[in-house]
Design a protein around this nucleic acid. Sequence first.
DNA 1: GCAAAAACTGACCGAATGGTCAGGATGGTG
DNA 2: CACCATCCTGACCATTCGGTCAGTTTTTGC
Lengths: 192, 192
Amino acid sequence: MLEDVSHHDHILQVALERFAHQGIAQTTIQDVADHAGSSKANVLYHFRNKNHLVDVALEPALGALGRLVERANDSELEAADAREWFITSFVDFLITHRLATHVIVAHPYLAEQSESLGRAHQLMTEMAHMVSNLSVGEEDRLRFGIAVSGATYALVSSGILGVPGLDDDALRTGLRDVLGQMLLSGQPAAGR
Amino acid sequence: MLEDVSHHDHILQVALERFAHQGIAQTTIQDVADHAGSSKANVLYHFRNKNHLVDVALEPALGALGRLVERANDSELEAADAREWFITSFVDFLITHRLATHVIVAHPYLAEQSESLGRAHQLMTEMAHMVSNLSVGEEDRLRFGIAVSGATYALVSSGILGVPGLDDDALRTGLRDVLGQMLLSGQPAAGR
DNA sequence: GCAAAAACTGACCGAATGGTCAGGATGGTG
DNA sequence: CACCATCCTGACCATTCGGTCAGTTTTTGC
């Protein structure tokens, strides 16, 4: 495998994979170093400490999520096409930043210890709150919660609930369809 | 507060709460002991080791889940009322064993280290596989994955996605309604 | 009331792990 | 070549945490 990426970035990539695969707490710096073909001390040369490694690894996803939330705040989501835009964007985000999303979702209680995890959860909450405000009923909110967290979770941990690993394209269209049915139309009958 | 429960059971309850609240890895035996008003050595007197503590704490939930899956296997779920029974039972399970479900769902990668977590994930997978076999289409499977994992997840981590904490009854009916809409009505029953 | 069993404790140990440090390679630049 | 900055490493340290143990207190059965 040829590497035209810097060791720095390679370590980051490996770290993200390890975090997603076995959790942050279970991933030691030594483990990251081994999988990156480096030494523990070198990982700590590139990144101040383990927390910093987590932060930098999640950075791109955090940026994208932040922009998504910001834009969703701007464009009022009451219009149907705006909601459709949101769903498409959100699914795109999920698929593009699959690993990072996994890490974020799988570590709710590390939010206080990690700068980026805290920010990520804050953004997720904000997003949920924003969109769920569209529907006033408890049941609507519940449906939104189920749809979004379910999509996130089903995508991310294809293991736990046996959702088969689809390729990205099938997943993208599938998620968009299902989410659309769940969220856009009041009744499942409407639309498609 | 009066205690007519044994210290043994009290430690178990506290442990389950701590595991659900801050994760297994972040919960030290000392932490459990403190919250239970006991000593670390005493916790280890009642339970061989930390893994054993996890196992015993999850035992009731595991039993219930096992019975649920077993019965679902027996009664063929093609009939509409059987599916409705399943949804009701599943929602009941989720609410009754809220904390345990949280622990199970939040620790996908500890499944290999813990007897009970492994078994739990196996059961969840089996259940998902079983029910999702009813619908052959990829999209149907995806919908099931989203609905079930979403319900589980939204229920369990009411924090992360801002689903407001409803009382048990509202939650029960709400979940049953939403899951019903997602799973039962949308698709033609048998055949396909 | 007493002896045995059960419950409980503080002190201690070993392994794992995050993090530091002094110094060694490596590569570019004058 | 000499100098210097960047990159990298093994050895080491401090802490945390799971788990053990010898011994003390409490409960139980007679």
